[in-house]
Design a binder for these strands. Structure first.
Lengths: 159, 159
DNA sequence: ATAATTAGTTAGCCTCTCTAATAATTAGAA
DNA sequence: TTCTAATTATTAGAGAGGCTAACTAATTAT
Protein backbone atom coordinates (compact mmCIF):
# COMPACT_ATOMS: atom_id res chain seq x y z
CA UNK A 1 0.00 0.00 0.00
CA UNK A 2 1.15 3.47 -0.84
CA UNK A 3 -0.28 4.79 2.41
CA UNK A 4 2.77 3.96 4.49
CA UNK A 5 5.04 5.68 2.01
CA UNK A 6 3.09 8.90 2.21
CA UNK A 7 2.83 8.69 5.95
CA UNK A 8 6.56 8.27 6.27
CA UNK A 9 7.17 11.15 3.91
CA UNK A 10 4.89 13.30 6.01
CA UNK A 11 6.58 12.24 9.24
CA UNK A 12 9.97 13.08 7.81
CA UNK A 13 8.89 16.54 6.70
CA UNK A 14 7.46 17.08 10.12
CA UNK A 15 10.19 15.72 12.30
CA UNK A 16 13.43 16.43 10.49
CA UNK A 17 13.16 20.22 10.83
CA UNK A 18 12.48 19.94 14.53
CA UNK A 19 15.48 17.74 15.04
CA UNK A 20 17.60 20.19 13.09
CA UNK A 21 16.41 23.08 15.18
CA UNK A 22 17.27 21.17 18.33
CA UNK A 23 20.73 20.33 17.03
CA UNK A 24 21.25 23.96 16.04
CA UNK A 25 20.49 24.98 19.60
CA UNK A 26 22.72 22.30 21.07
CA UNK A 27 25.57 23.51 18.92
CA UNK A 28 25.12 27.03 20.17
CA UNK A 29 24.82 25.93 23.75
CA UNK A 30 28.29 24.39 23.61
CA UNK A 31 29.72 27.87 23.92
CA UNK A 32 33.36 28.43 23.29
CA UNK A 33 32.95 26.52 20.07
CA UNK A 34 30.54 28.75 18.24
CA UNK A 35 30.03 27.25 14.83
CA UNK A 36 27.04 26.48 12.65
CA UNK A 37 25.91 23.08 11.53
CA UNK A 38 27.22 23.36 7.97
CA UNK A 39 30.51 24.60 9.34
CA UNK A 40 30.68 21.68 11.71
CA UNK A 41 29.80 19.22 9.00
CA UNK A 42 32.46 20.65 6.73
CA UNK A 43 35.18 20.43 9.33
CA UNK A 44 34.14 16.96 10.38
CA UNK A 45 34.34 15.81 6.77
CA UNK A 46 37.75 17.35 6.27
CA UNK A 47 38.94 15.79 9.46
CA UNK A 48 37.79 12.39 8.30
CA UNK A 49 38.87 12.84 4.70
CA UNK A 50 42.12 14.78 4.70
CA UNK A 51 43.21 16.52 1.52
CA UNK A 52 39.71 16.72 0.13
CA UNK A 53 38.88 19.25 -2.54
CA UNK A 54 36.03 21.72 -2.55
CA UNK A 55 34.12 19.53 -4.98
CA UNK A 56 34.46 16.50 -2.75
CA UNK A 57 33.10 18.47 0.15
CA UNK A 58 30.28 19.96 -1.90
CA UNK A 59 29.19 16.55 -3.04
CA UNK A 60 29.24 15.21 0.47
CA UNK A 61 27.21 18.12 1.77
CA UNK A 62 24.85 18.09 -1.18
CA UNK A 63 25.47 21.78 -1.80
CA UNK A 64 26.57 23.83 -4.78
CA UNK A 65 30.19 24.78 -5.25
CA UNK A 66 29.64 28.50 -4.66
CA UNK A 67 27.80 27.79 -1.42
CA UNK A 68 30.65 25.70 -0.15
CA UNK A 69 33.26 28.16 -1.36
CA UNK A 70 31.66 30.87 0.72
CA UNK A 71 31.21 28.52 3.64
CA UNK A 72 34.92 27.76 3.53
CA UNK A 73 35.65 31.49 3.32
CA UNK A 74 34.15 31.90 6.73
CA UNK A 75 36.15 29.07 8.20
CA UNK A 76 39.36 30.35 6.68
CA UNK A 77 38.70 33.79 8.13
CA UNK A 78 38.39 32.17 11.53
CA UNK A 79 41.64 30.29 10.85
CA UNK A 80 39.95 26.95 11.38
CA UNK A 81 41.00 25.58 8.02
CA UNK A 82 43.41 26.50 5.26
CA UNK A 83 43.27 26.19 1.50
CA UNK A 84 46.34 24.53 0.10
CA UNK A 85 47.18 24.43 -3.58
CA UNK A 86 47.50 21.00 -5.04
CA UNK A 87 50.75 20.54 -6.95
CA UNK A 88 49.51 17.82 -9.26
CA UNK A 89 46.42 19.69 -10.43
CA UNK A 90 46.80 23.39 -10.01
CA UNK A 91 43.12 24.27 -10.09
CA UNK A 92 42.36 21.84 -7.30
CA UNK A 93 42.27 22.87 -3.65
CA UNK A 94 43.32 20.82 -0.70
CA UNK A 95 41.45 21.59 2.47
CA UNK A 96 43.29 21.16 5.73
CA UNK A 97 42.13 21.66 9.30
CA UNK A 98 44.29 23.89 11.43
CA UNK A 99 45.04 22.81 14.94
CA UNK A 100 42.46 25.25 16.25
CA UNK A 101 39.95 23.86 13.77
CA UNK A 102 40.64 20.33 14.80
CA UNK A 103 40.20 20.99 18.48
CA UNK A 104 37.05 23.01 17.91
CA UNK A 105 35.40 20.33 15.85
CA UNK A 106 36.31 17.82 18.53
CA UNK A 107 34.84 19.79 21.36
CA UNK A 108 31.78 20.76 19.35
CA UNK A 109 31.20 17.14 18.49
CA UNK A 110 31.33 15.85 22.03
CA UNK A 111 29.33 18.76 23.35
CA UNK A 112 26.55 18.36 20.81
CA UNK A 113 26.63 14.63 21.22
CA UNK A 114 26.23 14.87 24.95
CA UNK A 115 23.40 17.36 24.71
CA UNK A 116 21.61 15.21 22.19
CA UNK A 117 22.22 12.07 24.19
CA UNK A 118 20.70 13.88 27.14
CA UNK A 119 17.48 14.29 25.18
CA UNK A 120 17.56 10.71 23.97
CA UNK A 121 17.78 9.50 27.55
CA UNK A 122 14.01 9.78 27.57
CA UNK A 123 13.88 6.70 25.39
CA UNK A 124 14.33 3.05 26.21
CA UNK A 125 17.15 1.13 24.62
CA UNK A 126 14.64 -0.72 22.47
CA UNK A 127 13.39 2.55 21.12
CA UNK A 128 16.93 3.74 20.55
CA UNK A 129 17.59 0.57 18.63
CA UNK A 130 14.67 1.38 16.33
CA UNK A 131 16.04 4.86 15.76
CA UNK A 132 19.46 3.51 15.06
CA UNK A 133 18.07 1.19 12.45
CA UNK A 134 15.92 3.88 10.90
CA UNK A 135 18.89 6.20 10.49
CA UNK A 136 20.82 3.44 8.79
CA UNK A 137 17.99 2.91 6.36
CA UNK A 138 17.62 6.60 5.68
CA UNK A 139 21.21 7.69 5.34
CA UNK A 140 22.07 5.89 2.11
CA UNK A 141 18.88 7.14 0.51
CA UNK A 142 19.57 10.77 1.24
CA UNK A 143 23.32 10.76 0.96
CA UNK A 144 25.14 11.73 -2.22
CA UNK A 145 22.53 13.88 -3.88
CA UNK A 146 24.18 13.08 -7.23
CA UNK A 147 24.29 16.73 -8.27
CA UNK A 148 23.19 16.32 -11.85
CA UNK A 149 23.99 19.48 -13.74
CA UNK A 150 21.95 20.60 -16.71
CA UNK A 151 24.91 19.94 -18.86
CA UNK A 152 25.40 16.41 -17.58
CA UNK A 153 21.74 15.79 -18.04
CA UNK A 154 21.76 16.84 -21.66
CA UNK A 155 24.90 14.90 -22.30
CA UNK A 156 23.42 11.72 -20.93
CA UNK A 157 19.95 11.94 -22.40
CA UNK A 158 20.33 13.79 -25.67
CA UNK A 159 23.84 13.08 -26.77
CA UNK B 1 25.43 1.12 28.08
CA UNK B 2 25.80 4.72 27.07
CA UNK B 3 27.28 3.67 23.77
CA UNK B 4 23.97 3.37 21.99
CA UNK B 5 22.94 6.84 23.13
CA UNK B 6 26.06 8.40 21.68
CA UNK B 7 25.79 6.41 18.51
CA UNK B 8 22.23 7.53 18.00
CA UNK B 9 23.19 11.12 18.68
CA UNK B 10 25.91 10.84 16.11
CA UNK B 11 23.58 9.25 13.56
CA UNK B 12 21.08 12.03 14.05
CA UNK B 13 23.65 14.77 13.54
CA UNK B 14 24.79 12.98 10.46
CA UNK B 15 21.52 12.08 8.85
CA UNK B 16 19.11 14.86 9.75
CA UNK B 17 20.93 17.52 7.72
CA UNK B 18 21.00 15.30 4.68
CA UNK B 19 17.31 14.63 4.91
CA UNK B 20 16.69 18.34 5.26
CA UNK B 21 18.76 19.09 2.21
CA UNK B 22 16.80 16.53 0.24
CA UNK B 23 13.49 17.95 1.39
CA UNK B 24 14.67 21.46 0.53
CA UNK B 25 15.39 20.29 -2.98
CA UNK B 26 12.09 18.47 -3.30
CA UNK B 27 10.28 21.62 -2.27
CA UNK B 28 12.05 23.60 -4.94
CA UNK B 29 11.46 20.97 -7.56
CA UNK B 30 7.69 21.36 -7.12
CA UNK B 31 7.90 24.52 -9.15
CA UNK B 32 4.95 26.83 -9.24
CA UNK B 33 4.82 26.62 -5.47
CA UNK B 34 8.11 28.17 -4.60
CA UNK B 35 8.31 28.35 -0.85
CA UNK B 36 10.90 27.46 1.75
CA UNK B 37 10.57 24.84 4.42
CA UNK B 38 9.95 27.25 7.30
CA UNK B 39 7.38 29.03 5.16
CA UNK B 40 5.71 25.75 4.38
CA UNK B 41 5.76 24.71 8.01
CA UNK B 42 4.24 28.00 9.07
CA UNK B 43 1.42 27.82 6.58
CA UNK B 44 0.75 24.18 7.35
CA UNK B 45 0.49 25.01 11.03
CA UNK B 46 -1.84 27.92 10.42
CA UNK B 47 -3.93 25.76 8.17
CA UNK B 48 -4.24 23.13 10.86
CA UNK B 49 -4.59 25.58 13.73
CA UNK B 50 -6.69 28.48 12.50
CA UNK B 51 -6.54 31.76 14.39
CA UNK B 52 -3.18 31.03 15.90
CA UNK B 53 -1.05 33.87 17.20
CA UNK B 54 2.57 34.58 16.38
CA UNK B 55 3.61 33.15 19.73
CA UNK B 56 1.76 29.93 19.09
CA UNK B 57 3.49 29.57 15.79
CA UNK B 58 6.89 30.47 17.23
CA UNK B 59 6.54 27.84 19.91
CA UNK B 60 5.52 25.23 17.40
CA UNK B 61 8.45 26.02 15.14
CA UNK B 62 10.87 26.32 18.01
CA UNK B 63 11.95 29.75 16.85
CA UNK B 64 12.17 33.17 18.45
CA UNK B 65 9.41 35.72 18.03
CA UNK B 66 11.48 38.10 15.92
CA UNK B 67 12.43 35.31 13.56
CA UNK B 68 8.84 34.33 13.09
CA UNK B 69 7.72 37.90 12.75
CA UNK B 70 10.08 38.35 9.84
CA UNK B 71 9.09 35.02 8.37
CA UNK B 72 5.46 36.09 8.42
CA UNK B 73 6.43 39.41 6.84
CA UNK B 74 7.56 37.53 3.79
CA UNK B 75 4.38 35.50 3.55
CA UNK B 76 2.23 38.59 3.98
CA UNK B 77 4.14 40.32 1.20
CA UNK B 78 3.33 37.38 -1.04
CA UNK B 79 -0.29 37.61 0.07
CA UNK B 80 -0.28 34.04 1.31
CA UNK B 81 -1.44 34.94 4.78
CA UNK B 82 -2.89 37.97 6.56
CA UNK B 83 -2.45 39.37 10.03
CA UNK B 84 -5.76 40.04 11.70
CA UNK B 85 -6.13 41.98 14.90
CA UNK B 86 -7.75 40.11 17.70
CA UNK B 87 -10.67 42.02 19.20
CA UNK B 88 -10.48 40.42 22.62
CA UNK B 89 -6.80 41.11 23.16
CA UNK B 90 -5.58 43.95 21.02
CA UNK B 91 -1.90 43.09 21.13
CA UNK B 92 -2.54 39.60 19.86
CA UNK B 93 -2.39 38.69 16.19
CA UNK B 94 -4.55 36.19 14.40
CA UNK B 95 -2.90 34.55 11.45
CA UNK B 96 -5.09 33.52 8.57
CA UNK B 97 -4.28 31.79 5.31
CA UNK B 98 -5.49 33.49 2.18
CA UNK B 99 -7.04 31.36 -0.51
CA UNK B 100 -3.82 31.57 -2.50
CA UNK B 101 -1.89 30.52 0.59
CA UNK B 102 -4.15 27.60 1.21
CA UNK B 103 -3.87 26.24 -2.29
CA UNK B 104 -0.12 26.72 -2.37
CA UNK B 105 0.43 24.86 0.85
CA UNK B 106 -1.76 22.07 -0.48
CA UNK B 107 0.10 21.67 -3.72
CA UNK B 108 3.49 22.02 -2.05
CA UNK B 109 2.55 19.36 0.43
CA UNK B 110 1.47 16.79 -2.12
CA UNK B 111 4.38 17.57 -4.39
CA UNK B 112 6.98 17.24 -1.65
CA UNK B 113 5.27 14.17 -0.31
CA UNK B 114 5.32 12.47 -3.68
CA UNK B 115 8.95 13.32 -4.31
CA UNK B 116 9.91 12.03 -0.90
CA UNK B 117 7.81 8.93 -1.29
CA UNK B 118 9.62 8.31 -4.54
CA UNK B 119 12.90 8.17 -2.65
CA UNK B 120 11.43 5.97 0.06
CA UNK B 121 10.32 3.47 -2.54
CA UNK B 122 13.81 2.05 -2.29
CA UNK B 123 12.86 0.63 1.09
CA UNK B 124 10.80 -2.39 1.99
CA UNK B 125 7.62 -1.94 3.98
CA UNK B 126 9.33 -3.47 7.00
CA UNK B 127 12.00 -0.84 6.81
CA UNK B 128 9.40 1.87 6.37
CA UNK B 129 7.66 0.59 9.45
CA UNK B 130 10.88 1.03 11.42
CA UNK B 131 11.21 4.58 10.16
CA UNK B 132 7.65 5.33 11.02
CA UNK B 133 8.18 4.14 14.55
CA UNK B 134 11.44 6.02 14.90
CA UNK B 135 9.82 9.29 13.86
CA UNK B 136 7.11 8.77 16.40
CA UNK B 137 9.68 8.27 19.11
CA UNK B 138 11.68 11.28 18.04
CA UNK B 139 8.97 13.83 17.42
CA UNK B 140 7.78 14.29 21.00
CA UNK B 141 11.34 14.63 22.21
CA UNK B 142 12.23 17.40 19.82
CA UNK B 143 8.88 19.15 19.65
CA UNK B 144 8.01 22.11 21.84
CA UNK B 145 11.44 23.41 22.66
CA UNK B 146 9.96 24.93 25.81
CA UNK B 147 11.57 28.32 25.12
CA UNK B 148 12.68 29.13 28.63
CA UNK B 149 13.49 32.81 28.85
CA UNK B 150 16.09 34.12 31.23
CA UNK B 151 13.36 35.84 33.10
CA UNK B 152 11.30 32.70 33.48
CA UNK B 153 14.37 30.84 34.57
CA UNK B 154 15.17 33.31 37.30
CA UNK B 155 11.58 33.46 38.40
CA UNK B 156 11.39 29.71 38.78
CA UNK B 157 14.73 29.02 40.31
CA UNK B 158 15.54 32.08 42.37
CA UNK B 159 12.19 33.46 43.33
C1' DA C 1 -2.19 53.98 39.87
C1' DT C 2 1.74 52.03 39.05
C1' DA C 3 4.57 48.13 38.19
C1' DA C 4 5.32 43.88 35.80
C1' DT C 5 4.13 40.75 31.99
C1' DT C 6 2.87 39.63 27.50
C1' DA C 7 2.55 40.20 22.27
C1' DG C 8 4.78 41.90 18.38
C1' DT C 9 7.90 44.83 15.78
C1' DT C 10 12.23 47.01 14.37
C1' DA C 11 17.07 47.26 13.69
C1' DG C 12 21.42 45.21 13.03
C1' DC C 13 24.16 41.36 12.42
C1' DC C 14 25.75 37.14 10.42
C1' DT C 15 25.13 32.61 7.92
C1' DC C 16 23.01 29.67 4.25
C1' DT C 17 21.92 28.84 -0.26
C1' DC C 18 21.04 29.69 -4.88
C1' DT C 19 21.99 31.31 -9.94
C1' DA C 20 24.84 33.58 -13.27
C1' DA C 21 29.11 35.01 -14.86
C1' DT C 22 34.23 34.62 -14.81
C1' DA C 23 39.16 32.84 -14.55
C1' DA C 24 42.39 29.32 -14.65
C1' DT C 25 43.86 24.76 -15.56
C1' DT C 26 43.58 20.31 -17.66
C1' DA C 27 41.95 16.78 -20.92
C1' DG C 28 40.29 15.44 -25.35
C1' DA C 29 39.73 15.61 -30.47
C1' DA C 30 40.52 17.19 -35.16
C1' DT D 1 49.40 20.16 -31.97
C1' DT D 2 46.23 23.26 -31.56
C1' DC D 3 41.80 24.31 -30.30
C1' DT D 4 37.73 23.01 -28.02
C1' DA D 5 35.54 20.64 -23.74
C1' DA D 6 35.28 19.96 -19.23
C1' DT D 7 36.74 20.60 -14.50
C1' DT D 8 37.83 23.41 -10.32
C1' DA D 9 37.07 27.14 -7.93
C1' DT D 10 35.78 32.18 -7.16
C1' DT D 11 33.09 36.46 -7.32
C1' DA D 12 28.87 39.10 -7.38
C1' DG D 13 24.25 39.64 -6.21
C1' DA D 14 20.04 38.30 -4.10
C1' DG D 15 16.66 36.48 -0.80
C1' DA D 16 15.77 33.66 3.37
C1' DG D 17 16.65 32.17 7.96
C1' DG D 18 18.29 32.81 12.48
C1' DC D 19 19.72 35.45 16.60
C1' DT D 20 20.03 39.35 20.35
C1' DA D 21 18.91 43.81 21.96
C1' DA D 22 15.93 47.48 22.31
C1' DC D 23 11.38 49.29 21.74
C1' DT D 24 5.99 50.07 21.66
C1' DA D 25 1.50 48.94 23.00
C1' DA D 26 -1.79 46.45 25.65
C1' DT D 27 -3.03 43.74 29.72
C1' DT D 28 -2.75 41.99 34.33
C1' DA D 29 -1.50 42.23 39.03
C1' DT D 30 -0.23 44.68 43.22
Amino acid sequence: MAKLLDTCAHELMDTAPQIMQAIRMEMRRGRGSDISIPQFRSMAFIQGNPDSSLSNLAEHLGLTLPSVSKLIDGLVKQKLITRKESTADRRRLTLVLTQAGSSIVDSARTSARENLAQKLKLLSSDELEVIYQAMNFLRPIFAGQSKVTAHDFLRRTVL
